[in-house]
Amino acid sequence: MEALIAIILGTLTACGVYLILRARTFPVVLGLTFLSYAVNLFLLIMGRLTVGKPPIILEGITDYADPLPQALVLTAIVIGFAMTAFVIVLALKAYVRLGNDHVDGTHKL
């Protein structure tokens, strides 16, 4: 399970980094989303992978699922969502204003 998650994380991050380095705004936005998926997953599993464990203290139980990363990742998702919405609007605005979707605003063939 750990290996699978690690591979997913690596793939997401690699795709994100690759797409951010592209010259068009749309791939860059996609790359940012991939990176934020990767980091959200990363934060979540930092509470360790557990199945069927209670997150709150109960009598007679020693193994727990860590509830804190779930709270952290919820905050991170909300912030990431807002940022993605903002950057999409900005990319559209840049496209309208600069007449092309190059990140530097200059279209060279």
Partner: peptide, 10 residues
């Protein structure tokens, strides 16, 4: 401003 802003945000 839009161009510089996009770089800053990303």
């Amino acid at each position: 401003r839009t161009k510089a802003g996009f770089h800053f945000v990303v």
